[in-house]
Each structure stands twice: as C-alpha cells, then as structure tokens.
C-alpha cells in the first residue's frame, strides 16, 4: 500500500445521536482510509441511515467527526459539502421538476461558486459512465424510472468531485440487474481513487466490493473487519447472508 492509502480520511469517535430521549446511536467509532470502500451493514432500524445523516450534519450529534484533516463538531451540511463530503440519501432528494442536466449541474454548485470551471469535463465523464442520463438529459428528473433516478442521484453527488462519497441504500427498490450495474460502478469509482462509505441491506454484494466492513446492530458496532473476512464469518453468514444465497452472489459478480 502507498502512503496516501494509509491516511485516515474519515475518523469518527464516540458518536452519539438521539431522537428526543431515545438514543439511536451510542458511541460509534469508525475510520475510513483514503481510497477505500467501507461498508456498513445491519438489519432494519440499526441506525445506518442515522449514522450517515449525523456524519453529514443533517442530524445533531455528540462526538467528534474528523474529516480530511479537520475536526467538525456538529457542523452544518453546507460546510461539509464545501469540504468535499457528498451524500446520496436514501430518498435521493432530486430536483424533480428540473431537467436531468440541471440536476447534474447543480451538483457542481460549490465548484462553480469557487470559480472552478472544469465541471463541464466532469459532466462528460458522468454521461460516459451513465449513457442513460445522456439520452434523457432534457427530461424532467421526476419522469425518470427508479434506476435512472438512482444513477442521477449518484451522478449529481459525483459532480462535486467529493473526497468521500457516502451512499445510503443505493440498491433500494432496484431490479437485480440494475443493482449489479450500480455495484460495478462503485468498484470502478474505487479504482479511480474515490473513497466511498456504503450503507447497504444487500450485505453480500456490499461485502464483495468493500475493503472493510462494519456491522451495525441496535445503534452500536457489533462487528468489524476486512470485508473478505466478514463475508466468511459464520455469525455474519447466519444473520445476514444466509446459506442459500447464491442468487446474491450473482448480483455482485
């Protein structure tokens, strides 16, 4: 491994999030090395989405978030986006009455504001990655199918050239073939050096592409380790993967 991959891009320690008096996350520690793909898996209600929302600053949290050499204590969303954090939320949050192209361009808003004019090039790269979006660039985002919306949401987040891309359940509601396509894109992005934090229900596919994995249960980290090891861990297999999971193996191939 090179020096760059050794650097911690994201370092979270003792993160607490509460909805009123109910604690959703209690003392989460998580690190992500630059250039790595880390996945967080876990059952429904484990706090996966809450974790991403807290890192992004959407939810107020206690604890320190160390990102790209700076400490953030309960920061706001816009500041973090400015520092190179990107989130593809579970709800996608597209600008449904605006065109696909406008959605993508707005992803580069921070770069435009800073006077970085090279976003046209990124736009072309994204169209190359998702030819479907190019075909539909003049169409309103609200008219897209589920898979296309997911592509648009990922493309829009990539327009800001984030240092760390966080994805919340990118395979939610998608047909298996499209899921496979999207996971292939994550592997591509990782090989281009984009760091990714992936939250997934589709545990087998996620473990297949990831370098390192955390298992979240009841608001706490239940297990962690290199993804390949976790995928063979009997406890994980029993709880999340199941034995007859050949079809899922196909998804991530």
């Amino acid at each position: 491994m090179t020096q760059a991959t050794e650097k911690n891009l994201l370092d979270i320690s003792d993160l607490h999030v509460a909805y009123g008096k109910v604690e959703a996350l209690t003392g989460i520690d998580l690190t992500l090395k630059e250039g790595n793909l880390v996945t967080v898996i876990g059952p429904n209600g484990a706090g996966k989405t809450t974790l991403l929302s807290a890192i992004m600053g959407i939810l107020p949290s206690k604890g320190t978030i160390h990102f790209n050499g700076q400490d953030f204590i309960c920061p706001n969303v816009e500041t973090l986006v400015g520092h190179g954090l990107g989130l593809v939320p579970e709800k996608r949050e597209l600008f449904s009455t605006m065109s696909v192209q406008d959605n993508l361009l707005l992803g580069a808003f921070q770069r435009y504001r800073r006077g970085d004019k090279s976003y046209d090039q990124t736009l072309n790269e994204i169209y190359k990655l998702f030819p479907r979006l190019w075909e539909r660039r003049q169409q309103q985002a609200g008219t897209l199918s589920g898979g296309e919306r997911q592509m648009l949401a990922i493309g829009r987040a990539m327009m800001s050239k984030p240092k760390l891309l966080m994805l919340d359940e990118p395979s939610l509601g998608l047909a298996p073939l499209i899921t496979r396509e999207i996971f292939r894109i994550f592997a591509d992005l990782r090989s281009q050096g984009v760091s990714i934090l992936l939250v997934e229900q589709n545990a087998r596919a996620a473990l297949k592409v990831a370098d390192y994995a955390y298992v979240l249960e009841g608001g706490q980290i239940a297990m962690q380790g290199p993804a390949a090891e976790l995928a063979n861990d009997p406890k994980v297999i029993e709880a999340y993967l199941g034995l007859a999971s050949k079809h899922q193996e196909l998804l991530s191939s």
């Binding site: 959407i58 969303v77 939320p89 949050e93 600008f95 707005l106 808003f109 504001r113 800001s160």
Partner: peptide, 23 residues
Amino acid sequence: TLYGKALRATAVNRMGARLQGIS
C-alpha cells in the same frame, strides 16, 4: 444561470439543495 437554478432548486427540494451545498 446556475445561481438562479440554485434558487429554484431550493424551492423544489430543500434537503436536496443543502446536499449540493446550496444554503
């Protein structure tokens, strides 16, 4: 203009706009 679109985007989807760094 992208600034105008950013304002419209805020009207369309507030959270979506915040995630693009549009305050």
